[in-house]
Amino acid sequence: MAGRRFLVTGGTRGIGRGIVLAAARAGADVVTCYRSPGESVNSLERELAETPGKHRVLQADAADERDVARLLAECEASLGGVDVVVNNAGAFQPKLYPELGSADWAATVQGNLTAAHLVTQRALPLFDGGGSIINLGSTVARIGMVGGVHYTAVKQALVGMTRSLARELGPQGIRVNTVSPGRIATEALDELPAEAAEQQRRLFSSFAALGRLGTVEEVAQVVLFLAGDQAAYITGQNIHVDGCV
C-alpha cells in the first residue's frame, strides 16, 4: 500500500479502526473520521503518530453533507487526493418491525446508505488515474435479522449501489466492491459484562462453519486486497467474510 492515499469513514472503533491501522502499517497515508470524541479517538491518534506516513483523524459525520465536504477538502489538502475510499461508517439501533418508526427508518438509511453516497460522490473528483471504492456491507443482508429489517434493507441496497457504480466508474479505472463481514470480535464484545460476552461468543461462533468469530484483522486484510493491484480485475463484487454462516 506504499504511496496509496486512503479515506476510511468511521475509523476509530471496530472494523474501521482495523482497516485504518492495517492500511497505515502497510505504508498508506490515511485520513479517517469519527462522530463523537473519546478515548478510542485519542488512542488511534497515538498509534498513527507512531506509524510512518501522513495520517489525519477528523471529527466529521459521514451522513452530513457539510461535514463530508470538509472531510474531502482535508483529503485534498493533506494527501493531494485519494486512491482508496472505504465507506465503513454506519448507524444501527435494533428495533422490531411493528415498532419501527419513520424516524428510525430514515436515520438508518441516512447513516448507512446516504452516507456512502455522499462520501463517494464527493470523492470522485479526487481520484487520479483510477482507484478503489470499498463499501462495508453485512452478511445479515443475505440471511436476515430479527429486529434489523431497516439495517438489512440498507446493507442490501449498498450491494446494488456497488454493482451499478462498478459499471459506471469502470471506464475511469475505478473499481467498486462490497465487503460483507459476519460476526466479528470487536471491542464492543469486550465492553459487555464477562458472562454476556462469553454467551454471545459461544452463540455466534456456533453459526459459522469455522466455529469461531472473525477478527478485525481478517476483514481489514480483505479490504487491503481489494485496494491493491492483485485485485485489478475484481469489481462489482460482494465478498463475504463470515466463516460461512
Rank of each mutant, 00 (worst) to 15 (best):
A69D: 13
F92Y: 15
A63I: 10
N88T: 10
R56S: 14
T152H: 12
S180K: 01
A77F: 06
L124S: 08
G53C: 10
N88E: 10
E50K: 10
R122G: 07
K155F: 14
A107S: 10
G80I: 07
E76T: 03
N177V: 00
T139P: 08
L113S: 11
Q172M: 11
E168Q: 12
A60I: 10
E50G: 06
V85G: 02
V140Y: 01
M145I: 12
G101W: 00
A141Y: 08
Q172W: 11
V68D: 06
L124K: 12
S132P: 11
E65A: 14
V82D: 01
W105H: 03
A123F: 11
L126P: 10
P94H: 00
G129N: 14
Q172I: 08
Y97Q: 09
H117C: 08
A157C: 10
I134G: 01
S102Y: 11
V119C: 09
A103D: 03
M161S: 06
G147D: 11
I134V: 15
L158I: 12
V86P: 03
E65F: 09
H55E: 01
A116G: 12
V159R: 13
D128L: 11
Y97E: 05
S180R: 02
A153V: 14
I134Q: 04
L165E: 03
A103S: 14
A166L: 05
V159H: 14
N112Y: 15
H150V: 07
K95P: 04
N88W: 00
L79I: 01
V85Y: 09
L72D: 06
A91N: 09
L113V: 05
A185N: 08
Q110Y: 06
V86Q: 03
D64T: 02
E76V: 04
P171L: 02
S102N: 13
V179Y: 09
M161N: 07
G129L: 07
D61P: 09
V154S: 04
V109G: 06
A141D: 14
R183W: 10
A62L: 04
V82I: 13
A62M: 08
T51H: 13
V140M: 14
V154G: 05
G80A: 06
G147N: 11
M161I: 07
V84G: 09
L58M: 15
T162P: 00
W105M: 04
L100C: 05
R56K: 10
A107P: 03
T51R: 13
D67Q: 07
A141K: 12
A89F: 07
P171D: 00
R56Y: 07
L169R: 01
A185S: 10
L79M: 02
G173A: 08
L165R: 00
G160A: 09
